Amino acid sequence: MSTADFTIVDTPIGPFTALADADGTVLASGWTDDAENLRQLIHPRLRPAELRQRDSLGAISTAIIDYHRGDLTAIDAVPVHQHSGEFLLHAWEVLRKVPAGDPITYTEFAAISGRPNATRAAANACARNAAALFVPCHRVLRIGGALGGFRWGLDVKRWLLSHES
């Protein structure tokens, strides 16, 4: 029976929860205080059976705080582990390379992920991303600059994009 640790960090846009495995790798995260909801977003092969709350997750907590305070690269080195098919895993790695302050469209995301005709698949990669912030799906917009969707709400996405610009 596996256990993941989680912590809840207060941010300017509400509580942010991160779940991590024993190695300090993020399994899921987002602007919520509901760790169980986040646990359910984790692929069944990686999903921990139990959760244990901690005051801090060390480097993960520091990165969350530093990012929200303005160090936009603080999240870049935090390891993330998600599980899915080859395209989604690759697309999530591509997302981690999209620089803060330089959002891309879903069409551009599909192209740089190696499937230029798969805009819907690219959007699906964003929708299925369990590790928000660390895999910055908020940096993908619709053509024309419309926000598109975001699991944590468009107000949060708007704040993040403004924070990064």
Rank of each mutant, 00 (worst) to 15 (best):
G114W: 07
R96T: 12
R96V: 07
A123K: 14
Y106V: 13
I75N: 03
A111E: 01
K97R: 14
V78C: 04
A111K: 08
H81A: 15
A123Q: 14
A122F: 10
P99L: 07
H81M: 09
N117D: 14
V98Y: 04
G114S: 08
L89R: 09
L72W: 04
V78L: 02
H83F: 12
A74Q: 02
A110G: 06
A121V: 05
Y106P: 01
E86T: 12
D76E: 12
I112R: 11
A100S: 11
A125V: 05
T105W: 08
R120H: 14
H83K: 12
V78A: 07
V78I: 15
V98F: 13
T107M: 03
V98S: 06
G101N: 04
A111G: 05
G101W: 05
I75K: 05
R120C: 03
T107I: 06
D102P: 00
A123R: 15
P99I: 07
P103M: 05
Q82W: 01
E86D: 11
G114T: 11
F87W: 13
A91W: 01
A110D: 00
W92D: 01
W92E: 00
A123L: 10
D71N: 14
G101F: 03
A91S: 11
L88K: 13
N117R: 15
H81W: 04
Q82K: 01
A91Y: 02
A77Q: 07
R96Y: 14
